[in-house]
């Protein structure tokens, strides 16, 4: 990969986008059978898979908190996710990304509902093309909802950067590698910022503008996340003959008891001998 001559020609970026345009996103919900919640996102050329397990028992035991659930987040890049083979396993960068991503999601989860348990999030980057931490957060947030974990709302994340002295939304690989700045941002749907990082340089004015652009991007991504979740069950619900019942009634088992009563005595006797 070499540095392009110019990043923007006549207001169009090298992949044909406008400066404030995000890459196309497709989201699939519930792709993994064994996970409690899962999500697969293709964001431009990024391919990211997220799995959520829990709430479940904490191992090792000493990590558990007596009043809340703990959230653990593992961000991992596959060795084949980048052009030059990445040495597998956690490294300085992935530990950092895991930490900031966890902190981006934690404020929206009602951890106090599940004391002494853990909610484990795994994000695997299968193909990377800049902005994988934001894609990871988007995927994880959808997977958490899919796992039935109570949350205040979804978290959406998006990056802004500067190339050729101009602010652009959602950097792609070339722009990220040879650009002047990269600023990922995550926010809740109410607009509270839960992640903000920056490398490179922006003037205070550019920074203000960049935050606004990223928030716009997050709003668009939120709509896509929302649609993915709604569409997943919409078809099922529409074809359903009987509407879903929610019972006020308590154990129906009582009648079973009567059926089995005679049997119980005998079985107990056998057992005591």
């Amino acid at each position: 990969m070499t540095k392009p001559e110019s990043f923007i020609t006549n207001g169009i970026r090298i992949d044909g986008r406008k400066p404030e345009e995000i890459r196309p996103i497709t989201i699939e919900v519930g792709v993994l059978d064994r996970a409690d919640g899962s999500c697969y996102i293709e964001h431009g050329l990024n391919k990211v898979l997220a799995a959520v397990y829990g709430p479940r028992e904490v191992h090792p035991r000493h990590m558990q908190k007596p009043t809340t659930a703990i959230v653990r987040f593992r961000y991992n890049m596959a060795s084949f996710s980048v052009e030059e083979r990445k040495r597998p396993g956690p490294d300085r960068r992935s530990v950092e990304v895991s930490k900031v991503s966890r902190e981006a999601l934690e404020p929206v989860i009602f951890t106090e509902y599940f004391p002494k348990s853990s909610i484990d999030v795994f994000v695997e980057v299968l193909q990377a093309d800049a902005g994988t931490r934001t894609v990871g957060i988007n995927a994880a947030s959808v997977a958490l909802a899919d796992a039935g974990i109570p949350m205040r709302g979804l978290v959406s994340a998006c990056a802004v950067g500067k190339v050729d002295g101009e602010l652009v939304l959602d950097l792609m690989k070339e722009e990220d590698n040879y650009g002047e700045a990269d600023m990922p941002l995550a926010m809740t749907q109410t607009g509270e910022i839960t992640l903000l990082q920056m490398d490179g340089n922006l003037t205070p004015e550019e920074f203000e503008k960049a935050i606004e652009m990223a928030q716009e991007g997050c709003k668009r991504i939120y709509e896509i996340q929302r649609n993915a979740l709604i569409e997943r069950y919409k078809r099922d619900i529409e074809t359903e003959e009987e509407p879903l019942e929610t019972p006020e009634e308590e154990p129906v088992e009582v009648e079973t008891v009567v059926e089995n009563e005679a049997e119980e005595e005998t079985s107990e006797e056998v057992e005591s001998e």
Partner: peptide, 12 residues
């Protein structure tokens, strides 16, 4: 109870 069920996501 026969009207269409509304699906919501967290934060709706």
């Amino acid at each position: 109870m026969s009207e269409k069920q509304r699906i919501v996501i967290p934060g709706d």
